[in-house]
Design a protein around this nucleic acid. Structure first.
Lengths: 215, 215
DNA sequence: AATTGACACCATACCCGCTAGTATGCTTTC
DNA sequence: GAAAGCATACTAGCGGGTATGGTGTCAATT
């Protein structure tokens, strides 16, 4: 009685992988990674374990794939603002707004990221898992470099306070990730809430960097 | 061969509870809550499950107790700065510095808090667990109200930007919690690093609140 | 001071549910 | 007809929790 490809399945295997990832991210986001069983995810797909384990090798691989996708989404969404011209303050404001925006768009994915943030090396990770983790780390690194660049430029040009770059970057990222923790889209919301949030947080980010270092 | 009370045990049962909590927090912080078994914690104490389950009803109770202790520590450490006089900016700066300070002092406890932040209700929580969680929520609420008060006061007096209070508070808390994610005490550090961190973050927090709302 | 219970304290050994992962075979597709 | 795609049924092991018994401590009693 199976085999009847329906809905999003017609677009090929990658689309099916994606559908599984979406479902997994949603379940992980609401119930937590550890408390979500593979059967839960399969059930939310109207399928069984077999489907998931056909496309992914393990639960850990699922989590790593979600993490990687999250970072890719974020990087792709913020890069234009980085490449766009303007003084450091303007660029950083646009980047910050874009970051907050994508946090709220793909909320489930980013929730998984922050939950699994303090990468407990997950003893016994497979080869694929390690590879995904490595890609994620690398992309995350180049992503943070975008902000590091702009901050440094801003410090050198005097618009940002001359403080410790590493601390500033870490703090900025946490500030921009904040909505992942508390934002809950309201039913029937049309985007004005999101605009307010991203505008305010971007403004706060700029203010934080402009702060005088001494006190 | 047992029964020989040693080390910190002489100070009574509460001290033993505390020792267990410390060990649990440390293990949880380094390996993650889910990946840490009760046996792991017991081993790190030079004891067995029996000791832990004599003092705590369940693993969940352990986690909740750690969370509560974390909030209590933070509240107690920041309250003096709240009560101290000064204009809103000064008070908030002191409160922020105190918050960051206690984050780095009781790092393990706060790590557990942020890891279990998005409270997955943990289906089947016992009565004691629910009670601990309720106390934690309550205290967390009154703690955040300290900051809310000062922010509101600052907005009214014009030193802070007139932005959405809820978003500002959430963002501020995340900014102040940031060190929990990345700070690692260096061997033989004598406190100058911590001073630099808390000073810079407090300054950034002030700057974030002073930011102009519109853009 | 010595004895005796009573209870706090903890070790040992055991159970058992839960879920990640696998083995297998039936469909559908190409 | 070969291979991808997936359902079904099963296994295995980890770890949370418990049942039980032993050991020390302390207070009351004699």
């Amino acid at each position: 009685m199976s085999g009847a490809r329906s809905a999003a399945d017609h677009a090929g295997p990658d689309a099916r992988r994606r559908a599984i990832l979406d479902a997994a991210a949603r379940r992980f986001a609401v119930a937590g990674v550890e408390l979500t069983s593979i059967d839960d995810i399969a059930r939310s797909l109207g399928a069984t374990k077999g489907k998931i384990y056909h496309h992914f090798g393990s639960k850990g691989e699922l989590v790593r794939a979600i993490r990687l996708h999250s970072v890719q989404l974020t990087h792709d969404h913020v890069l234009p603002a980085y490449r766009g011209g303007g003084d450091p303050a303007t660029r950083l404001h646009r980047m910050a707004a874009a970051h907050v925006e994508v946090m709220m768009q793909a909320l489930a994915y980013h929730r998984v990221v922050v939950e699994t943030m303090r990468a407990h090396p997950h003893r016994g990770a497979t080869q694929v898992e390690r590879s995904l983790a490595a890609q994620t780390r690398a992309l995350q690194g180049t992503y943070e470099d975008l902000f590091r660049d702009v901050i440094r430029e801003g410090i050198e040009s005097g618009v940002f306070a001359g403080q410790n770059l590493s601390i500033a970057l870490h703090s900025l990222m946490m500030l921009l990730n904040a909505p992942v923790y508390w934002y809950r889209p309201r039913l029937g919301e049309r985007g004005t809430d999101r605009d307010a949030i991203k505008t305010q947080i971007a403004a706060m980010a700029l203010g934080a960097l402009r702060a005088a270092p001494g006190d």
